[in-house]
Structures are given as structure tokens and as C-alpha cells.
Design a binder for these strands. Structure first.
Length: 220
DNA sequence: AAGCCAATCAACCGCATGCAG
DNA sequence: GCTGCATGCGGTTGATTGGCT
């Protein structure tokens, strides 16, 4: 695989974006969209690589970005999803409208990780080896009980059995079908609805259990 | 006031994957 | 099937900020 030359070798700028650069990027994307990130900086007149532009747009400039502190509810969602999905930040972000994977990743490392480690030291058993224990601790008992009996896949997921297999694989990247599923899924379930969120947990539980995956790998 | 240190977060890096030719 | 390009992703870095001594 041939690697594209890095920004510096191409004489492109690195480091923090200036307000002027931001404005140029915003104006260009609003006008022409972002069909081709690699070609975009040249067309827009920016001395940046496409990768840098994409990151700046998706993590900071996008109009639907939600700035500011994470709510309690968002924190809980992140914690629960991280227990089920591990460091799949983009998958977690897809469940939190307006939040980016980078933002969630940073928030996890700077806030939640430490908090959970403290909490675990205090009141969690030292050996958690399966998802049932996780679910018992973090999902309301009625949902957990339900999850014991449910064998059907999530309704928005049934159409794509391949997607399920992919999500069970060890691949650390989403497949296209998984991405599409995530997008569809996030549009079907607003994060404000904790009932649907807990149903999500049941769904993921089923995915993992049906796969026979070693869950301790998934939550490590 | 100055220096140090830890926390935070924007941005970069390198790898993996999808896809077109 | 192979190759190369474009993009997405997670890990990491480094500049900035704020608190403490």
C-alpha cells in the first residue's frame, strides 16, 4: 500500500487552525460540499491536507456539533456502550447525536476512565468475566431479565445478517453494513429515550451472546 | 509574580478497509 | 486477483490552560 506523502513534505500547513482557515473551509463546504477531501483544500485555497480538513470539519466545524459539557445521561450512555463495545469510539459516537468520536474519546480518557477506576476499586468485584455481570450492574433489572429470554435480533438489524456476523468478528473496524446499521439505528432511537437505549443494550447483549465471543475481550 | 505540574482537548499519525480501475 | 487511492478509525502527541506552591 503506497502511503500518501505527509503534509509537511508537501509544504502544507500543520497545527492549530486559524479562524480564517475555518471560515474558508466552512464557506467552501457550504457551497460545494465535501465530495472529495483530498481535492478539497486545493479547490478551497487552503494549505492543508485533505485529512486535516476532514478532521477539522467533522470534529469542530460541522453545524450539528454539540459543544459544551456532557450531560449525566450522555455520560451513562458512554459508560454503558464502552462496556459493551470497548474502544469503538465511532460506534459509540453514532449513538450520541452531535458528539464526535474524538470528543468522546477525550472525555473518556480525561473523566470517565478515572472515575470508573475509582468506582471499581471501591465497590466492584475484582473478577468480572462475563457480560451478564456487566449487564446486571449497569442495566435496570427488568431489562436485564428480559434480555435473558430474547433471541431475536434487533428489529432494525434483522435485514442484514451479514452485518451481525461482521460485528461478531474480531475486525476492529466497522464494515460498511455495520456503518449503515449504526446510522439507521441512531436515527431510529433518540438518545433522550432511555427505554430505547436499554433496549439497545439488550440488542448488543444478544449480538455478543449469539456470537459466543469472549466478552472479557470486548470489555477490556 | 514566577515557576511547576497536571488536566484538557485539538490535531496528527499510521494502519485498516472499501472500492474502482 | 492485484494495485493504488480515498477515507475512516483509534492511538498518541503536544500546545494551552488553570491551579497550586
Amino acid at each position: 500500500m503506497v502511503r500518501a506523502p505527509c503534509c509537511e513534505k508537501m509544504g502544507l500547513k500543520k497545527g492549530p487552525w486559524t479562524p480564517e482557515e475555518d471560515q474558508i473551509l466552512i464557506t467552501f463546504i457550504q457551497k460545494y460540499g465535501h465530495e472529495n477531501w483530498r481535492a478539497l483544500p486545493k479547490q478551497a485555497g487552503l494549505l492543508r491536507c485533505g485529512k486535516s480538513c476532514r478532521l477539522r470539519w467533522t470534529n469542530y466545524l460541522r453545524p450539528d456539533i454539540k459543544r459544551g459539557n456532557f450531560s449525566e445521561e450522555e455520560e451513562q450512555i458512554i459508560i454503558k456502550l464502552h462496556q459493551l463495545l470497548g474502544n469503538r469510539w465511532s460506534a459509540i459516537a453514532s449513538r450520541l447525536p452531535g458528539r464526535t468520536d474524538n470528543e468522546i474519546k477525550n472525555f473518556w480518557h480525561t473523566h470517565l476512565k478515572k472515575r470508573l477506576e475509582l468506582k471499581q476499586d471501591n465497590d466492584l468485584p475484582s473478577t468480572i468475566t462475563n457480560v451478564s455481570q456487566i449487564l446486571e450492574q449497569h442495566i435496570p433489572s427488568n431489562y436485564y431479565q428480559d434480555s435473558q429470554n430474547i433471541v431475536a435480533y434487533h428489529p432494525t438489524y434483522y435485514h442484514d445478517q451479514e452485518g451481525i456476523q461482521e460485528s461478531n468478528s474480531n475486525s476492529h473496524h466497522d464494515t460498511q453494513s455495520n456503518k449503515e446499521e449504526n446510522m439507521q439505528y441512531s436515527t431510529n432511537n433518540e438518545h433522550g429515550d432511555m427505554t430505547s437505549f436499554n433496549n439497545d443494550m439488550v440488542f448488543w447483549y444478544n449480538v455478543f451472546m449469539s456470537s459466543g465471543n469472549n466478552v472479557s475481550d470486548e470489555i477490556s
